[in-house]
């Protein structure tokens, strides 16, 4: 492996440790699964928000689309049940397709706007989509889709239960890793340079010959694809039903923003750090002072963001610059 791809090693280690702890220490798998979900969410969101500096408040809609993609894949292709897991693959493909289509539609309109205007324009996307599905009664409208029985038919009862309690989380792990790998590949290619340039100064980037719209769309679609597959794995396969109000909940977008900012926007390791810090503190706060976790958590986040505007990893990167460790932290 070439030197410039070394920073993937700490990512691999982090995910490996998480996996081994969850697998071998009894009673920790649920926590690990939650942490993996947050890491994957941050990693996927970081490709767009971290690298371009644009904040997409409608991000959860891509996860929603992914969830619906998987649900539709399983319910509409149940007649292929003798092929078993192939249907899951079809579900993922549909999830990718649907989140890509939505991201193209949203991107074509909203990516023409800049900064805060983009953020405002995207706030409506998830709510709008939810009302569209409920109001126009698309895909069963507000009743949602419950596909427990189809999943059991396809995979058999035991395999289906193993899927939702274990393998779905492993898929989330794979998605998190792939998103991290993509981030690093982007960083080390022209795409990354173009995104950094446009994040820092869009007008200067344009004059330098960078087709900013093209690169923004690349980042947007890539990020949306990971969100879609995350929805399919973590929401559809883990809990085999989908209801519009749950999968278009803006709450998850906010969590994604917090994770990325906490860890360090635009860094490779940031989402891992952010996901772990956020996930663990949320978990323990809700045990010790249930109901008050957000009240405690909000000021902590404010303090961290004021003190380390670059995020935890951004700060670490500055400290370890020019050292051996620094080579692994980007």
């Amino acid at each position: 492996m070439r030197k410039k791809y070394l920073p993937i090693i700490p990512v691999i280690i982090a995910y490996l440790v998480l996996f081994l702890v969850g697998k071998n220490v009894s009673g920790t798998w649920q926590l690990v699964a939650t942490l993996l979900f947050y890491c994957a969410l941050g990693q996927a969101f970081n490709i767009f928000m971290g690298m371009t500096g644009y904040v997409d408040f409608g991000y959860v809609a891509f996860m929603g689309m992914g969830t619906y993609g998987m649900a539709l894949g399983i319910t509409r292709f149940v007649f292929l049940q003798e092929y078993g897991a192939v249907i899951i693959v079809i579900g993922f493909l549909l999830a990718l397709l649907m989140s890509t289509l939505l991201s193209i539609a949203v991107g074509a309109v909203a990516l023409r706007l800049r900064g805060a205007y983009f953020a405002i324009a995207t706030i409506g996307v998830n709510e709008g989509f939810r009302f569209l599905i409920e109001g126009a009664r698309i895909w069963n409208g507000s009743e949602g889709i419950i596909f427990m029985s189809q999943l059991n038919d396809i995979l058999g009862r035991d395999a289906a239960s193993a899927l939702s309690t274990f393998w779905a989380d492993v898929m989330v792990l794979v998605i998190a890793f792939l998103a991290a790998l993509t981030t690093l590949l982007f960083m080390r290619s022209k795409i990354g340079y173009a995104l950094t340039a446009l994040r820092e100064d869009e007008d200067a980037a344009k004059v330098m010959g960078i087709n900013v719209t093209k690169y923004k769309i690349i980042a947007f679609i890539t990020s949306a694809c990971f969100a879609g597959s995350l929805g399919a794995a973590s929401w559809a396969l883990k809990t085999p039903y989908v209801f519009p109000p749950e999968v278009f909940e803006i709450h998850y977008t906010i969590e994604a923003i917090i994770i990325v900012l906490l860890g360090g926007a635009g860094t490779l390791l940031g989402p891992v750090a952010g996901g772990l810090i956020y996930g663990i503190s949320k978990y323990y706060l809700s045990i010790f002072i249930p109901g008050f976790q957000l009240l405690i958590f909000a000021p902590i986040i404010i303090v961290i963001i004021v003190l380390f505007p670059q995020g935890v990893v951004g700060m670490l990167r500055d400290y370890t610059k020019n050292t051996v460790v620094g080579r692994f932290i980007v």
Binding site: K190, Y193, A194, T196, A197, R199, E200, D201, A204, A205, M208, G209, I210, G266
Partner: peptide, 16 residues
């Protein structure tokens, strides 16, 4: 491009 190094800034020029 403030968050990039001088080297990266200049490389962007060559790249595009």
């Amino acid at each position: 491009f403030g968050s990039a190094t001088v080297r990266e800034n200049v490389a962007v020029g060559a790249m595009f």
